[in-house]
């Protein structure tokens, strides 16, 4: 008896929505970055779940499209955090604030 895929996808959608709500409602750059991480994680969960559904080809060989995709997402998330936190540090340095509304000017 394995886990119904519908439940996995619903969980993924729920986590994604929580991430969206966090990213849209909070004004703190760190919380926004963490919400984006949460969304990426939700996407990963869906990818791994779908990989479980299409886990073997017609010939019976294993296939890993979803899991490989999830690995790529993890790598890209790590890159995103590195750059995001770099931006955060320079925002603090220039504006002395974590609030993204303080960085609404295109140039100064």
């Amino acid at each position: 008896m394995s886990i119904p895929i519908e439940h996995v996808i619903s969980l993924s959608a729920l986590l994604f929505v929580i991430g969206v709500v966090g990213a849209l409602t909070r004004r703190n750059l760190i919380v926004i970055l963490m919400s984006i991480e949460l969304m990426l994680n939700a996407a990963n969960l869906a990818l791994v779940g779908f990989n479980r559904v299409w886990s073997v080809t017609a010939e019976g060989a294993a296939r890993y499209d979803g899991q490989v995709f999830a690995l790529m997402v993890i790598a890209v998330a790590a890159a995103e955090v590195a750059v995001g936190l770099g931006i955060l540090l320079s925002l603090i340095r220039n504006r002395d604030s974590l609030n993204v509304d303080d960085a609404s000017l295109l140039r100064w």
Partner: peptide, 23 residues
């Protein structure tokens, strides 16, 4: 539980071990 053991290990190693620690 979804038979993705390597992804699980990498998830903890990268997310819990590196990304959140960086935060």
């Amino acid at each position: 539980l979804m038979h993705a053991e390597l992804i699980a290990a990498i998830q903890i190693l990268v997310y819990a071990g590196a990304i959140v620690v960086l935060f």
